[in-house]
Amino acid sequence: MNLTLKVWRQKSTSEQGKLVEYKVSEISEDMSFLEMMDVLNYKLIESGDDPVAFDHDCREGICGMCSMFINGEAHGPNRGVTTCQLHMRSFKDGDTIYIEPWRSAAFPVIKDLMVDRSAFDRVQQAGGFISVNTSGRTLDANAIPVPKEDADKSFDAATCIGCGACVATCPNGSAMLFVSAKVSQYALLPQGQVERKERVLNMVKKMDEEGFGNCSNIGACEVQCPKNISLDNIARMNREYLMASIKPEN
């Protein structure tokens, strides 16, 4: 099929960007969206132009690197998939496709469609970890009993791949879905109890410092999240934070 692409081109963080129109032809519907982008880039390279910079790594929906705002939606029109899992059969011959980078003050554009998501790393470093004894007598995680329901919820939260689609989609540029998934994943497990209170306090503090917006329960993040992370996690984080603020010591 033949497509018209309107791609955001921006040379660097400090320079102004704009949408540039490209035509691509002979796109197979079996191609993934990123493969279609590869076709465009080959074409650009052959004609001596600068290829479109975009993030990608695993191309199978697990690394969270790919990040495109496609036709007004994070990771495109399909639900529960990342951009790399989106296939061209979701589009029609002759379609015009808008491709833009994540928009958020906390995610500055590095180049074209690449944004700097290190703010997520810093939030994670502020508390998204557990202390484990490495003295040689490390407790086997499988030997610690965890109620099935908690294990399931924790696992669901842990499937967050840190892609940032939640922030990109949120009209408030809020990172609550991501942060709440990280908080929940540990709060539900025995291993996460030691830092439970300081974790939520520190991660929320860092989240605010990084310039993410405030959640107003619009709920768009949950809809656009490629891993279907639930808003229940945000409610859990709200509870965790409330408890930790009222009684900070364990």
């Binding site: 007004g72 928009r103 958020s104 009209p171």
Partner: peptide, 25 residues
């Protein structure tokens, strides 16, 4: 005002209605 600051650049094409209600926004 804080939330507007957190999203300073608008999308050229944004399909908000696909994922949220207008009144919640």
């Amino acid at each position: 005002f804080q939330n507007r600051k957190a999203r300073p650049v608008k999308y050229a094409y944004e399909k908000s209605s696909a994922s949220s209600t207008w009144y919640s926004r």
